[in-house]
Design a protein around this nucleic acid. Structure first.
Length: 569
RNA sequence: UGGGGCGUCGUCAAGCGGUAAGACACAGGUCUUUGGAACCUGCAUUCGGAGGUUCGAAUCCUCCCGCCCCAGCCA
């Protein structure tokens, strides 16, 4: 594993959270400590939006010499599962971050949270309410009208304490009572209208089993968990801005050991995908994708399987910035970061996706040459390898046109191209299947003097093509991925369902591709540049006798753009 | 029409009273044994709008407009 680039703080682009921390550092607030946390709820897989938060929280800790905890916000057993707590840890680790021994769960604090609740009751700050969920809603009021107080609001402390203890003891039905904060039913901030702190819920918790039948709400558990961990800067997304008064209320009304500060930033949105866990879950459950780790998913697991390097994802998260403006980042920007990293790190290999047999009529029948090929022109230290070359080759079907349009510089009858690392060849004849008219083979002549040499003057050989030796090539399956959705914003469809915007061609499976012999033994996860085509990684399910490659991202394709323009004219 | 936020290029985003960074995208071009990469050029006389303060405003003030979030015993 590569060590993380640690840039000096001065070179990091500034953003408002860094500004806040810088100010705290000069004022001495938080004793110059920086202690953050990443607090996922284990109710789904992590996605690129979480990656932004992970990079922010762990990155801040790294930059300021502080710490970052991983804490599972597991206060709702009806939605949470161990599968998710495991995948989340794997994903955070894979992204390159380390919480060391600081792996926590809100459920670790259930007992302390309970004691804090009794404290609130004793101080007259909370009460047991017998209203049903429906009744609570009735009394909450609306955005423009104040709420009305619960008839149970003024219960004596002793009665509240007794009732709350009996709630814990399991004496009451699920949903029959709640513990509510006693704040202000007429607050213009709905969150402050006596919010529920505890509800009765008989559900098997993935860690505490059936030890509890009352569970704390997020608004109560989160600030107190932060305080117990002595978090300095509790970074969360914008939709919690309205909750901050409640966050502070909790900290101000129980005897917590610390007062963290909540800071909100805008969550990440991206074009051509959906980010809500609910929608991603649906794609998985309805079989629209193969699973949470389908390479088309914006999940970390999907991106890992797709071949996105964690380093590139981190760079992306750093470059998109941190602000409070709701933003939608262009998917092309993520792809740019992926290409930029892979260009420097991925070994070049030759793979023919749609093979067309090419016979070099002037090349000796049995002759095999081993040609030297650099592994990465961007990185001389990547070394070289030897490639077999012979009379029969496979070339890309797309690299030949019988009747080439303007600006098509590849092979055509009578035309020449350079074969990468090898000779210049001229196409003499296209052999067709008499039945279908389809070109099945190219008869070509190699310029035996041209190996490794400069292009002789007067000849215009504009294009260098990739190829593989027919006698040595290894057949492989290649999966070509496109955007999962057709629309920039799949959720915007008025009244429509976002799945209607799914791209029917987001996955194209190619069988019988021909790759250079060395690739047969490449292990899962290894990533290459298939020259002139894109970056491809070995799929997790690939086997030596049936190699499978996923296209991570294509190379930029100038010709495709020209062809498209010509087609539309 | 309650409350909380936010409005700088198509998209992100710097800027913090001294005269609009950068990146992606896009459009041209150079170079090239990847039509890749790299490199060069172009791309906001203007910062949601209108007033005001000031020698000077994207930055300060006022009003207006627009967008996002909140009425789960979800997080």
């Amino acid at each position: 594993m590569e060590t993380r680039d640690t840039k000096p703080a001065g070179e990091m682009p500034s953003h408002f959270i860094r500004d806040i921390i810088d100010a705290d550092q000069t004022s001495g607030k938080h004793g110059n400590r920086v202690h953050t946390r990443f607090p996922p709820e284990p109710n789904g897989y992590l996605h690129i939006g979480h990656a932004k938060s992970i990079c922010l929280n762990f990155g801040l800790a790294l930059q300021y010499g502080g710490l970052c905890n991983l804490r599972f916000d597991d206060t709702n057993p009806t939605k949470e599962e161990v599968e998710y707590v495991e995948s989340i840890q794997e994903d955070v680790r894979w992204l390159g971050f380390d919480w060391e021994e600081r792996l926590f769960y809100a459920s670790d604090y259930f007992e302390q949270l309970y004691r804090f609740a009794e404290e609130l009751i004793v101080n007259g700050k909370a009460y047991v309410c017998d209203l049903s969920a429906e009744e609570v809603r009735q009394l909450r009021g609306t955005l423009t009208e104040p709420g009305r107080e619960s008839p149970y609001r003024d219960r004596p402390v002793e009665e509240n304490l007794d009732l709350f203890r009996r709630m814990r003891a399991g004496e009451f039905e699920d949903g029959s009572r709640t513990l509510r904060a006693r704040i202000d039913m007429s607050s213009p901030n709905l969150n402050m209208r006596d919010p529920v702190l505890y509800r009765i819920l008989r559900a098997e918790h993935h860690r505490t089993g059936d030890a509890w039948c009352i569970y704390p709400m997020y608004d109560y558990a989160h600030p107190l968990s932060d305080a117990l961990e002595k978090i300095t800067h509790s970074v969360c997304t914008l939709e919690f801005e309205d909750h901050r008064p409640l966050y502070d209320w909790c900290l101000d009304n129980v005897s917590v050991p610390y007062k963290p500060q909540q800071i909100e930033f805008a969550r990440l949105n991206m074009t051509y995908t959906v980010m809500s866990k609910r929608k991603l879950l649906r794609l998985v459950q309805e079989g629209r994708v193969s699973g949470w780790d389908d390479p088309r998913m914006p999940t970390i697991a999907g991106m890992r399987r797709r071949g996105y390097p964690p380093e590139a994802i981190r760079t992306f998260c750093e470059r998109i910035g941190v602000a409070k403006v709701p933003s939608t980042v262009d998917f092309a920007f993520l792809e740019h970061c992926i290409r930029e990293y892979l260009n420097r790190h991925a070994p070049r290999v030759m793979a023919v996706l749609e093979p067309l047999r090419v016979v070099l009529t002037n090349y000796p029948q049995e002759k095999i040459e081993w040609l030297e090929a650099e592994n990465n022109p961007e990185d001389p230290s990547a070394g070289k390898r030897l490639l077999p070359f012979g009379r029969e080759l496979f070339m890309e079907r797309e690299d030949f046109m019988e009747d080439p349009p303007k600006k098509f510089y590849r092979l055509a009858p009578g035309r020449e191209v350079r074969l990468k690392h090898a000779y210049i060849i001229r196409c003499d004849e296209a052999v067709k299947d008499p039945a279908t008219g389809k070109v099945v083979e190219l008869r070509c002549t190699a310029d035996l003097e041209s190996r490794g040499a400069e292009v002789p003057s007067g000849r215009s050989v504009k294009v260098t093509c990739h190829w593989v030796s027919a006698a040595h090539a290894v057949p492989a399956e290649v999966r070509l991925y496109e955007k999962l959705f057709l629309k920039e914003n799949p959720e915007s469809a008025e009244g429509g369902d976002f799945v209607e915007n799914l791209n029917p061609d987001s996955l194209k499976v190619l069988e019988g591709c021909m790759v250079e012999p060395g690739l047969a033994s490449a292990g899962p996860g290894r990533i290459f540049q298939f020259m002139r085509q894109g970056y491809f990684n070995v799929d997790a399910g690939s086997r030596a006798d049936h190699p499978v490659f996923n296209r991570t991202v294509s190379l930029k394709d100038t010709w495709a753009k020209i062809a498209q323009k010509q087609a539309s004219q």
